[in-house]
Design a protein around this nucleic acid. Sequence first.
DNA 1: AATCGTTTCATACAAACGTTTGAATCACAG
DNA 2: CTGTGATTCAAACGTTTGTATGAAACGATT
Lengths: 221, 221
Amino acid sequence: MADDTRQRLIDAAGTIFAEKGYEAASVRDICTAAGANLAAVNYHFGGKRELYVTAVRHAQCCRQEDVPFPEYPADMPAANRLREFIGTMFERMLSTNRPRWHLEIMLRELARPTEACAAVVDDYIRPMADALRSILNDLLPENLSEEQRWMIGFSTVGQVLFYYVHQPIIRLLTQNPEGNSFPLPLLADHVTRFTLAAIGAGPPVVVQDAAFAGTRTEAES
Amino acid sequence: MADDTRQRLIDAAGTIFAEKGYEAASVRDICTAAGANLAAVNYHFGGKRELYVTAVRHAQCCRQEDVPFPEYPADMPAANRLREFIGTMFERMLSTNRPRWHLEIMLRELARPTEACAAVVDDYIRPMADALRSILNDLLPENLSEEQRWMIGFSTVGQVLFYYVHQPIIRLLTQNPEGNSFPLPLLADHVTRFTLAAIGAGPPVVVQDAAFAGTRTEAES
DNA sequence: AATCGTTTCATACAAACGTTTGAATCACAG
DNA sequence: CTGTGATTCAAACGTTTGTATGAAACGATT
């Protein structure tokens, strides 16, 4: 029952922290939701702050196990690995069969960093960044500056993140109260093709009915 | 002096709300920062909540005036207008000569909507979305689904937003404590070329030393 | 059964919160 | 100068916050 209360507290805390943020979530609400006594938080974790950090750490552990990155066959083309990567990222974010708060609490941390942010980046973000950069390295020419490699990577994950972080805006803009107007595989395909085309490793996402010579900027002509 | 304290309260509130969020910001801190009495908030605005909404509305008004969208010459190529649009967006976000909290408080609102969110979308976001879609319509073939047009637009602004919303991660990842490792025009150029190339309206952001035939996915071959 | 360390519980505490109040102060018209 | 409405002020309001405390309940070991 001891570890059980501990775990119930982490789950309840995660849900409420993710929903309301650190300050707005009260220890009393968390304990009530967990079916635990008010003093349990201080007994098991030492305080509200430590409970929060524990919840964040727990969330990132679970997420990594929930949707692990696939092991690619050695001969898999880089473009296909990119598709897998983006698909996995979307699944991690938008899949509804896992507790929502795991991702939510981490994104809160990334947008407004607290002390737990560095840990999230090191343990969760950096491995993803490394995986992406490894894929991109196979897709990009060797004589490319580090700066440009970063920017291309950011352009890729920026697209994916947008669909999650700014879901409220998307719904308001497209006037679709439901968010599932864009099915997951459609989004993953779009971002993959968008990115591949941008770096010259695939065809454009749309077929231009006229040559683009007329619409390109002067600077590039 | 009456309207003066009112304005000082809005400014102080904006700064603190943007920095700490709604719940963590206390009316006492705001009044101290504004050099006003504790009761001033309730006298001038009716309460904390109303002050917050007022600050958000004030922020979006200022932002629109600060960095207005340029008037394009009628014959300006769509690709150049896209470059202008992206450049303006970056300036609105990353330019440091304007009070930071204007944008910050709006982005908070967009990520975690409160009652003020719909107003921000209608008055600030939708005009930007319309401007972008108008540009993209000139760049895209006519026989394209609304769904795809939205996705291409989201892929564009998603890139821009990433550099602002996730600046902390960028610094941690690239190990540059300063955020100015990516100068504004460089970012704008990159996103523009990335987007143009993706939709087949410009050359890839990098020159592929080999034909991409070997790296494209099977599905597309 | 007695003892021990662990966990739960009801309760209390001081601090901070948003809000209210009524008197004091101001600017200005009569 | 006097009166009046708008504004500021110090003080206090009742809640809610996170945390602390000591007694009760539990489980395992002796």
